[in-house]
């Protein structure tokens, strides 16, 4: 595990915002991720994908931030998807009994395909 300083970037693919958290997702960086997702939600984006390709570690506080993002988006009638999660992160969600509350996809293409099928 190598942990880089946290950064978050994003890009838009039509009506989908893809967010890239990089580094260690914890109490400090969680706020950054919430802000980035909130920015897209406020701009009217209903579909947000978080790509964890460059996320090294997610601690339990980071998970609570992800739950808050999901709750905010669901309240606004949106959808939150996770993609390219490492095995340890997926297992963490599994261990906590949280997998049924999120949509997981192996890669961006599969995520975008699923969101297109979903329509809206």
């Amino acid at each position: 595990m190598t942990t880089s300083p946290f950064q978050v970037t994003s890009r838009l693919v039509k009506d989908v915002a893809i967010v890239y958290p990089r580094g260690y997702l914890n109490n400090l960086s969680g706020e950054g991720l919430v802000n980035e997702c909130g920015k897209h939600a406020r701009a009217g984006m209903k579909k947000i994908v978080v790509n964890f390709r460059e996320t090294d570690l997610i601690n339990s506080i980071g998970i609570s931030f992800l739950l808050n993002i999901m709750e905010d988006l669901q309240t606004a009638g949106g959808t939150l998807c996770f993609t390219e999660m490492k095995k340890v992160h997926l297992d963490t969600f599994e261990m906590l009994g949280l997998t049924k509350y999120f949509l997981f996809f192996p890669d961006e293409q599969a995520t975008l395909q699923a969101l297109r099928t979903q329509g809206g």
Binding site: N59, S60, D91
Partner: peptide, 15 residues
């Protein structure tokens, strides 16, 4: 893989 889990448990305990 096992090490990743142990690291996570340790991180949680330290936090």
């Amino acid at each position: 893989d096992l090490l990743n889990y142990i690291q996570l448990a340790l991180v949680e305990t330290c936090i």
